[in-house]
Write a protein that binds this DNA or RNA. Sequence first.
DNA 1: GTGGTCTAGACCACC
DNA 2: GTGGTCTAGACCACC
Lengths: 139, 139, 139, 139
Amino acid sequence: MTDGFQVKLDFDSTRPIYMQIVDEIKRAVARNLLVSGEKLPSQRELAEAARVNPNTVQRAYREMEMMGLVETRRGEGTFIRDDENLLASLRGEMAQVAVDNFIRQVLALGLTEAEVVKLVTTQYREIQSGKRGEQDDVR
Amino acid sequence: MTDGFQVKLDFDSTRPIYMQIVDEIKRAVARNLLVSGEKLPSQRELAEAARVNPNTVQRAYREMEMMGLVETRRGEGTFIRDDENLLASLRGEMAQVAVDNFIRQVLALGLTEAEVVKLVTTQYREIQSGKRGEQDDVR
Amino acid sequence: MTDGFQVKLDFDSTRPIYMQIVDEIKRAVARNLLVSGEKLPSQRELAEAARVNPNTVQRAYREMEMMGLVETRRGEGTFIRDDENLLASLRGEMAQVAVDNFIRQVLALGLTEAEVVKLVTTQYREIQSGKRGEQDDVR
Amino acid sequence: MTDGFQVKLDFDSTRPIYMQIVDEIKRAVARNLLVSGEKLPSQRELAEAARVNPNTVQRAYREMEMMGLVETRRGEGTFIRDDENLLASLRGEMAQVAVDNFIRQVLALGLTEAEVVKLVTTQYREIQSGKRGEQDDVR
DNA sequence: GTGGTCTAGACCACC
DNA sequence: GTGGTCTAGACCACC
């Protein structure tokens, strides 16, 4: 796992393990931690590292292949495809989830729209400026 | 369990259990799931429900007493105090954490400030309008 | 025992032991028997010396930490903090209690204000002059 | 013990019990809780109340008789004598002890003479004014 | 070594 | 019933 992503699994979750693997890789792609053309770990490698059955990893990779996120080249490995549209929609989905959770939280706290926008713009600038030259472990 | 809050603990976390209890109750107060004057479960009740030692619950309650969040009356129980300033700062803290996490996520996705603001305002209105008469379990 | 203070506990008192420990240390600090930066005995040491449970000592130390009197550094120990304001207010409190008790005594004896002031000034000078080079155990 | 004084004994003290009884009665006299002509409890009564041997009480009463504080009239009981000089010296002694302890305390706290006098005069007036119509349990 | 957390359980005080 | 204190002892984290 020297790659730019890690697969953290929750074995207590009701969400199937293979889906969790897909989620993690989608997330890494959306965040540019995995880029077009990059090779994923081999199925065996990942299975060992994540301590799951190789079949589980294979199912995850097959799902991603079907959704067009990766392509598997026999004898070579599995690679992130170069598909701008897919990437954009991935990012859109994740942004949507993030914003949705965020809004629910601030609504529960009783913040008005104006307050939220204020906080968001302020914090956006603050964090962005602080990011210069920093390592990017924003998980 | 009939209360407006639940205490979910992660026994694997490095965060001490008593702090997790405090966190949960602070959160419930910030969200108005627990309001001024309301009685918390007795130390023994909560200890049993959360499957922790009564001493652990007591430590949590004592911490909250010291920070002025609750008031404990011997022989009667522990109650949420009425302190507007404290409540406001609690909400401020939680909003800050929420916005901070959110911004880090969207920055990792490469969204611009304008895009973020757009998403936020759109979603704010959407979720708020959908909230009418709904139950509020947004955890 | 080589420290400048001793913790004498009254196990029959209704005052909790951990508070008695706090009282004693506050007194020692107010009297400069313990000074800024000085290390308190470790929790286990004091527990053994005072024949109480380590948890009881810890509670005392935690209280003092919260009131800002001491600073505890994990793996190192607990130290008197350097806080002039706190020290002054500690001394003020203790002086207040002493003067209060004293006045009640002399009032009960029927002394007038003038008589009291006379006694106080005379005795102040007498005791102070006798103090030169004496050991200071005025408990 | 409907009288204006109580005899509290410390059986762990090194000070003999009979002296402690004398001390307590001297204190009550100095404070006008026992006045000239007043009858002390009978030796048996006091022995029973204080849970000591009647001989011990007798010794205490004998001491006080010798110092001129009380007189015993066979068949009647023991009474506080009317001796202004003795009373004055009793009060003087007690005042001396009180002031001595007090000065040692405030010296240990580092108060200057001026500060002490200031505190004493302020507190004298405060307590005295607060005393009006109050019950006088200043022990 | 140091402090920090937690459990199990006793006993007390206030109501 | 409620919370408050204390003990005994385990186990962990930091040094």
